[in-house]
Nucleic acid binder design. Structure first.
Lengths: 354, 354
DNA sequence: TTGTAAGCGTTATCAT
DNA sequence: ATGATAACGCTTACAA
C-alpha cells in the first residue's frame, strides 16, 4: 500500500510551506518559476493527486454535477448523458448519475439530498408522476442551479431544453393522415408530463385540422405496462381496429410491433405506425420504423452548457429560458402507403450518422 | 437564498454542543432519547442535509464508487450500470460515471485521478486498446478496490465478472454449423481484449471440431468503423461470400444487417447471422436476430457486490476471483435453415418484400 | 516570493 | 450523557 501523498509531504521534501506548494500547483503568479518547477516535478514523481473533498470543502464547490433521469437503458437518455458528459469533461467536472426508475419518492429524496452541496448543479428529467416540484424549488433556494431537459416542468421558472414536441407531433400526424390513416390512436404516458401533453396536443390538432373524429378511446395512457399490453392487444384485434398509431414514446411502439408480430397484423398495409424514438435499429426493424428522432446528444449538450453558465455566474441572466432543438421526422416503411416504393435509404442514412 | 444549515446552527438553537448533535443524528447510543428526538425534529424542520465533503474528508471515505466504461449508448453497458446502481442504492452509495470513448489516454488519466480518494472503489470495463495496466495497479496501491467486468484484464490479480464467452461462442458457432453454414466469418474488435480472444477461440475451436477450413481472412477485426463497413461490404458482395457470420459485438452485427438490406442479401437463406447482443429489438428486426444474450444486469450487480465486499473489508479474501454468469443463445430467424418454419409473420413479410 | 494561520463542516478522542 | 477540541487536506487572507 503506497503511503499517502499530500501537500504536507511535498512541502516537507522541498522545505517549503504547504501554502507555497498549493499555490505552485495552481500555477499562481506569486510563485517563482523555479519553485514551481521543483514542485511540479516532485508532484509528478510522487503521483500526487489532490484530495478533492478537502478542496471541495474549502472552496465550497464540488466540481461535480448531478444528472437525474427516470431510466438509463433508453436510447434517448443515454445519448443525452453522452452530450452532458462531453461538456462536463471539457469543464473538468465529474458526473453523478441518479436513476429514479419513475419513482417519485426516489426523485424527491434524491433531490433533497443534493441540497447538501454534493453537486454544483443538477440536470433533471422528471418522473412521469411528478406534479409537485417543491423539492426542486428547495434545491434552488439552496443556491444550486437546475436545468430541466426533455421531461421538463414548465412555468417552474427553471431553464428547459426540449425538442419541438408539439410541432413534431403535428407534422408526424399529418404525415399519417396523408398516408391514408383515418382511425388514429395515440399511445402515451400519463399526462402530467409536459412532453406527453404537447405531443398529444399536436396529434389532436392535426386530427381536428383534417376533421377526423376523436373519442375518449383515441388516447391510450400507459400506467402499468402489463395492463397496457393487454389493452393494446385487444384494441388491435378488435372489430374496429386502428389504421394508424402514434406512439409518444419509444417503449410503447415496441409493444405495438410485438403484438403485430404475434397477431400477424401487417405493417404498414393494415396498420401504419410511427413513434418518437431514438432506436438505432429503427431502419432494421420489420418493417423499418418511421420515427421522430430527437436530437438527444444536442439536448444534453445544450442543457449542460446552460447549467455551466449558471454555475459559473449565478447572476447570469439567460437571454432565453427555454431552448427548443427540433426533431427530424424520418419516414420509413412503417408508414408507407401501398403505392409507394419501399426505400433502401436507411442503410446510407445510417452510415452517415455512424 | 436559504441560509446554510449546519451542525453548528442546530447546536446553537438547541443549546447543545456540535458533537452532541452529530452523535444524535447518527443515532449514537451515548445520547439520551430525549435529546435525539429534539435534534431529529429540528434537523427535519430545518431540512438539514449533512455536508458530504466535510464528512468524506473526516472519515476518509466518500460513499461513492466510480464506473468506467468505453461507451454509454450501448444496451449491454446501460443494463450493467442499472445493476450497479441497484446495489449502490441499497448501500447508500453514489455513482460517478466515466466514459472513456475507447480512448486509452482518457482511461489512464481518469484512473489516475481516482487515486485521489474521490471514490471508495472502481468498477471498470477497459478500452479496446488497453494493454498496459499500470494505472490500475497504481489505483490498487492506493488502497482503492477495483473489480473488472466484461472487458476484463485477466491475470491482473483483480476480481472479474464476465459471461461464459468461450462456451457461448463455441455453442453458437456449432449452432451455425448445424444450420448448414460452411463458410463462416468472425467479426470482432481488436484482440487485446480478453472477451474478443475468448469469443474468437470458441469460434475457432468449433470450426476445427467440425473440420471446417480457417484462413487468414476468416477473422475480421474492426479498428476504424468506416473502413470496416467497406471491408465488410466487399466481403458480402464477393464471388465467394460467407454463408454464416458471427459478430462478437452488437455494433458489428448491425453493419451486417445494413449491408444486407442495401445489397438485397437475404438472411437467413443466403447468409445466417448471429451475434453477442443485448438489443431489445432483436426479435423485431428483419429478420429477428439470433443472439447470445448476456446477463448484463446480473453482471453489474455481481460486480458491484464484489466491490462492496472489498470496500467493506479490505482484507476479505474472495473465495473466488473470477465470476462467470452464463449467456443464453436465443435462436431466432436469422439462423434458421430453409426447412425450418419461420417463427413469425414479420420474417415472412420481410422475405416477401425483399 | 514565501510563510503563518484560520477555517471549510464534520467526526473522533478525551475529558467532564 | 454531553462538551471541548483536534484533525481530515486543502485554500486563502494576512504577515513577513
Amino acid at each position: 500500500m503506497a503511503e499517502k501523498i499530500d501537500l504536507k509531504r511535498i512541502a516537507r521534501e522541498l522545505n517549503l510551506a504547504v501554502s507555497t506548494v498549493s499555490r505552485a500547483l495552481r500555477d499562481s503568479y506569486e510563485i517563482s518559476e523555479e519553485t514551481k518547477q521543483k514542485v511540479f516535478a516532485l508532484a509528478r514523481q510522487l503521483n500526487y493527486e489532490p484530495n478533492p473533498y478537502a478542496s471541495s470543502l474549502r472552496r465550497q464547490r464540488s466540481k461535480t454535477i448531478g444528472v437525474v433521469l427516470p431510466e438509463l437503458p433508453n436510447n434517448f437518455f443515454t445519448h443525452v448523458v453522452n452530450g452532458i458528459e462531453w461538456v462536463a469533461r471539457q469543464k473538468g467536472y465529474h458526473v453523478l448519475i441518479y436513476i429514479t426508475h419513475e419513482q417519485m419518492e426516489q426523485e424527491i429524496s434524491l433531490i433533497r439530498h443534493l441540497q447538501s452541496g454534493r453537486v454544483d448543479g443538477v440536470l433533471a428529467s422528471v418522473c412521469a408522476g411528478t406534479q409537485d416540484i417543491a423539492h426542486f424549488r428547495s434545491l434552488h433556494q439552496h443556491g444550486i442551479p437546475l436545468v430541466f431537459f426533455d421531461r421538463v416542468c414548465e412555468d417552474s421558472g427553471f431553464p428547459t431544453v426540449t425538442t419541438n414536441d408539439y410541432e413534431a407531433s403535428y407534422h408526424a400526424t399529418v404525415h399519417l393522415i396523408q398516408q391514408g390513416c383515418r382511425h388514429l390512436y395515440h399511445l402515451t404516458l400519463p399526462l402530467h408530463l409536459s412532453i406527453t401533453r404537447k405531443r398529444l396536443q399536436g396529434f389532436l390538432d392535426a386530427l381536428q385540422q383534417y376533421q377526423l373524429p376523436v373519442n375518449e378511446s383515441t388516447v391510450l395512457i400507459a400506467k402499468d405496462m402489463d395492463l397496457f399490453y393487454d389493452q393494446l392487444d385487444q384494441l388491435l384485434c378488435s372489430t374496429q381496429p386502428p389504421d394508424g398509431i402514434f406512439a409518444a414514446v419509444e417503449k410503447l411502439v415496441l409493444l405495438v410491433y410485438h403484438i403485430c408480430q404475434k397477431r400477424h397484423i401487417r405493417i404498414p398495409s393494415q396498420l401504419k405506425v410511427l413513434a418518437f424514438s431514438n432506436l438505432e435499429t429503427a431502419p432494421l426493424l420489420a418493417p423499418p420504423l418511421t420515427t421522430i428522432t430527437q436530437p438527444a446528444f444536442e439536448i444534453g449538450k445544450k442543457a449542460a452548457e446552460l447549467l455551466f453558465r449558471k454555475i459559473e455566474k449565478k447572476r447570469d441572466i439567460l437571454e432565453q429560458m427555454h431552448y427548443v432543438i427540433p426533431s427530424a421526422l424520418v419516414i420509413r416503411d412503417s408508414t408507407r402507403s401501398l403505392g409507394q416504393a419501399l426505400s433502401n435509404q436507411s442503410a446510407a442514412e445510417w452510415i452517415h450518422s455512424a
